[in-house]
Simulated scan of single mutants.
Amino acid sequence: MAARELEEVLKEVRRIQIVAKRQVNDLLAGEYLSAFHGRGMEFNAVREYVPGDEIRSIDWNVTARTGAAYVKTFCEERELTVMLMVDISASGAFGSQRLSKMDTAIEVAAVLMFTALKNNDKVGLMFFADDVISYIPPRKGRGNVLRLIRELLATEPVKTQTDITKALEFLGRVQRRKCVVFLMSDFLGPDCSRALAIANQRHDCIAVTLEDPRESTLPDVGFVTLRDAETDELIELDTRHPRVRTLFAQAARSREQTLIGWLRRANVDRLTIRTDQPYAHSLQRFFRARERQR
Score class of each variant (00 low, 15 high):
R142Q: 10
R147K: 10
R147V: 03
L148H: 02
I149E: 05
L152H: 06
L153A: 08
T155C: 15
E156P: 06
K159V: 10
D163Y: 03
A167N: 04
F170W: 02
F170C: 01
L171P: 00
R173Y: 07
R176C: 02
R177K: 11
V180I: 07
V180A: 00
V180S: 00
M184K: 02
S185K: 02
F187I: 08
D191S: 08
C192R: 01
S193L: 13
S193K: 07
A197W: 04
A199K: 03
A199L: 07
N200F: 00
Q201S: 07
D204G: 01
A207T: 07
E215S: 13
E215M: 07
D220Y: 12
G222R: 15
V224R: 13
V224S: 08
V224M: 07
V224L: 13
V224C: 14
T225M: 09
T225Q: 11
A229E: 09
T231S: 15
D232T: 13
E236N: 11
H241P: 10
P242K: 13
R245K: 14
T246L: 12
F248W: 11
A249F: 12
A251W: 11
A252P: 05
A252K: 08
S254A: 12
R255E: 14
I260E: 14
W262V: 04
W262Q: 10
L263K: 03
R264L: 15
R265T: 14
A266P: 02
A266V: 03
N267G: 05
N267E: 15
R270Y: 03
L271W: 00
T272M: 10
I273V: 09
T275H: 04
T275F: 05
T275C: 14
D276F: 09
Q277W: 09
Q277K: 15
P278N: 11
